[in-house]
């Protein structure tokens, strides 16, 4: 959103369009369904739960884009896993 400011009052909606398009195409090209993400989410939860106690409601898995050094975008699987506490006996 700083983009708006940096162009001194210009609306610059093309940057909004470009960002939206890039994210959209990451999804289109990866061709992932909500069901796929739910499956990934479930499996990750099972594995991680063996080691740490996690906040299941806060768990978020999504496909996003990641900017590479040459300024192109690649799809990335992002998992945000809030930890409640570590399991003592396994540390």
């Amino acid at each position: 959103m700083d983009l708006f400011k940096s162009f001194g009052g210009k609306s610059n909606s093309k940057n909004v369009a470009k960002e939206r398009l890039q994210l959209l195409l990451v999804h289109d090209r990866a061709d992932v369904s909500p069901k796929f993400l739910e499956m990934v989410k479930g499996e990750i939860m099972n594995v991680i739960s063996n080691y740490v106690e996690i906040d299941e409601d806060g768990l978020n898995v999504e496909i996003t884009k990641e900017r590479k050094t040459d300024d192109t975008f690649v799809p990335a699987l992002h998992a945000n896993i809030p930890i409640k506490k570590m399991k003592k006996n396994l540390r």
Binding site: K10, S11, K14, A17, K18, Q22, L25
Partner: peptide
């Protein structure tokens, strides 16, 4: 020019 439409480079990047 106003920044309200994607230009050729923007589209070719994608």
């Amino acid at each position: 020019k106003r920044g309200d439409m994607m230009n050729i480079d923007d589209i070719m990047d994608i």
